[in-house]
């Protein structure tokens, strides 16, 4: 058993956790920003898939990965804007509309990818992002190689978390966002345009989801496959609940989830016992449901989440 644990807890393990956590952190933060303003975005799974596809395609044809990231973010923002038009502008059901966005984006991603690359036996690939060692910091023992020898997008996520936390709790933008999600009528009385605040929050959140998709096809992997997202969007929805709608806690939730995921990957390769590997795949989902049940007593969802805002209705 000791040998198994040694095999699991190497320096590479810590680095793997951070790598796996990166797309989840982007997706979770995006969903959190949207939900903090009062709009649940179940379109996340499809938005991530479509952005992963458009971003990959843009990088493939332009030869520039950053073009891919920007296109992915723009795709995410655009699709989230559609969600915002329906849920914020027209006040339609957030659940159903989100599922519609996911179905639409998933179909569109498959359709366009098949149209562009046909059914070839060797799928197109890009030269993915290379990890970037930060001078001095990366030479700190153990931690240095794990934390400061990562992809640039990972560093952006690391910096992004405290920046978003600051923006959410310490700026007028964040105050308006939180008010739109907690007490929209009070916000309205204070002269804040609830619809405008929610609209931009949903769109910004969508851009984050897009970057999450781009990370998967251009950093973690180097190609687009139909199963590239495989439920990561749904996991992000759960991580927002688990992270109690707080940026730092959400990032922590993403790290915790990445730890479980990296752990199960290593257990699989270590070939422990006769447990089917699907048990490990299902574990994060089961764990999240249990965590939601345990934490539900002190749930802190934005009170106006899922509630459409209409000025004339009180």
């Amino acid at each position: 058993m000791n040998a198994v644990f040694e095999q699991i807890f190497q320096v590479g393990f810590l680095a793997a956790i951070i790598r796996i956590a990166t797309p989840l952190a982007f997706a979770t933060l995006g969903e959190m920003i949207s939900e903090r303003s009062g709009v649940l975005n179940l379109g996340i799974e499809g938005i991530m898939l479509l952005s992963a596809m458009t971003g990959f395609t843009a990088a493939y044809y332009s030869g520039n990965l950053w073009v891919g990231v920007i296109v992915a973010a723009a795709t995410g923002a655009l699709m989230a804007a559609v969600h915002a038009v329906f849920t914020v502008g027209l006040g339609l059901s957030q659940h159903v509309c989100g599922i519609g966005i996911t179905l639409f984006c998933t179909g569109l991603a498959y359709f366009l990818f098949r149209l562009l690359f046909q059914d070839s036996s060797n799928p197109p690939t890009v030269t993915s992002f290379q990890s970037l060692a930060i001078p001095f910091l990366s030479s700190i023992p153990i931690i240095g190689q794990a934390v400061f020898n990562q992809f640039t997008l990972t560093y952006i996520a690391m910096i992004g978390v405290p920046v978003i936390a600051f923006a959410l709790y310490r700026t007028p933008w964040g105050l308006n966002l939180r008010m739109a999600g907690e007490n929209p009528h009070a916000a309205d009385s204070a002269g804040v345009s609830v619809k405008a605040v929610r609209f931009q929050a949903v769109v910004l959140g969508g851009a984050f989801m897009g970057v999450a998709g781009a990370f998967l096809t251009m950093a973690q992997f180097n190609t687009f496959t139909f199963g590239v997202i495989s439920g990561r969007g749904w996991i992000a929805i759960a991580l927002v609940v688990f992270g109690r709608w707080d940026p730092l806690r959400c990032a922590g939730a993403a790290l915790l989830f990445a730890f479980i995921d990296a752990f199960q990957l290593r257990l699989q390769t270590a070939g422990v016992g006769h447990v089917p590997y699907q048990v490990f795949l299902a574990l994060p989902f089961v764990f999240t449901i249990i965590a939601m049940a345990v934490m539900s007593r002190n749930a802190s969802a934005p009170p106006a989440l899922l509630k459409a805002f209409r000025k004339e209705e009180r």
Partner: peptide
């Protein structure tokens, strides 16, 4: 034309219907 068009139609139909409900 890729058969995935049927998936796109499903998603679009749901969104169109939602808008129509208005």
């Amino acid at each position: 034309v890729p058969a995935f068009l049927s998936e796109v139609i499903q998603g679009t139909a749901l969104l169109s219907m939602l808008a129509a409900l208005l």
